[in-house]
Computed example of a mutant assay.
Amino acid sequence: MLHLLLILSGVTLGMAMPLPDYYSYSTAVGDGSGTEYSTAYDGRVTGIRVWEYNNAYIRGIQLRYDGNWTTPVCTSYGNPLEMTLRGNESFIQVSGKYYYGYIYEIMFVTSRGRSLKVGLSYGNSFNFYPTNDGSQLRFLSGRQNGNGITSIGAHWAVY
């Protein structure tokens, strides 16, 4: 009996409790032509820059992690629209429109209710958000063809 108790206690002590899954992915939208991209970088997302083509599709995106800007995705031609986060603020929603070859509109919403909307409201709608409470935007991924962003997906996690 003592032997059985020791075995059972060893099994109980050796079993790890499952941890909640704090990562989620919002599946990419768009036609997905061109070269893959990812804005993944160390740190917390603290800003966003977006370039558009003549009030039409999205040409380029750049994220800031802590104080460092990533390399722009696709192109940084022209003047970007930019949003910098404040204090404990984070991006908690990414939405917009896509149609055939490009992402036409993109909007980033923060935990404080602020938003940055860029592009032309044209095409099919998408709405990305984390599935876990307390999660925030960690990075974007998708495809680009040198002229603009052709697909986009969002990765979320607790930071």
Rank of each mutant, 00 (worst) to 15 (best):
V50M: 09
T39K: 09
T46R: 11
G30C: 11
A56T: 13
T39P: 03
G60I: 08
T39S: 12
G34Q: 08
T46N: 06
N55G: 11
Y41H: 12
V45L: 02
S38R: 09
T46I: 03
R59I: 03
W51I: 04
Y25P: 03
R59W: 00
A56C: 12
S26M: 13
A28F: 07
Y53P: 02
N55L: 12
G43F: 04
E36T: 13
A28P: 08
T46E: 02
G60W: 04
I58N: 04
I48G: 05
V50N: 05
S26W: 06
S33W: 12
E36L: 13
Y37I: 02
A40L: 10
I61L: 10
D31L: 13
A28N: 11
T27M: 15
L63A: 01
Y37V: 01
Q62E: 06
Y53W: 14
Y25V: 14
V29M: 09
E52N: 13
Y37N: 04
N55H: 13
G34S: 09
D42Y: 12
T27E: 15
Y41C: 10
N55Y: 12
T35C: 13
L63H: 01
V29K: 07
L63D: 05
A28T: 10
I58A: 03
Q62F: 05
G60T: 04
I58Q: 01
T39Y: 02
D31P: 08
R64Q: 09
Q62I: 05
G60F: 06
T39I: 07
I48A: 07
T46Y: 02
I58G: 01
G47H: 06
G47R: 00
Y57D: 05
E36S: 15
G47P: 00
I61T: 07
G30I: 08
T46H: 01
G60R: 00
Y57E: 08
I48K: 00
T46V: 05
S33H: 15
S38V: 11
G43T: 04
D42H: 09
R64V: 05
G30D: 08
D42V: 07
R44P: 00
I58E: 04
T46C: 07
G47C: 07
V29Y: 02
D31T: 15
G34Y: 08
Y53H: 12
I61N: 06
S26N: 10
Y41F: 15
N55K: 15
A56Q: 14
Q62S: 11
N55T: 14
V45N: 00
T27C: 15
G30K: 09
R64G: 03
I58D: 00
N55Q: 15
A40E: 10
A56N: 14
S38K: 08
A56L: 14
R49E: 04
S38W: 10
T35I: 13
W51K: 00
L63W: 03
V50W: 01
L63P: 00
A40V: 11
S33P: 08
I58S: 04
G32Q: 10
S26F: 07
N54G: 13
T35W: 13
Y41N: 13
D42M: 09
E52C: 06
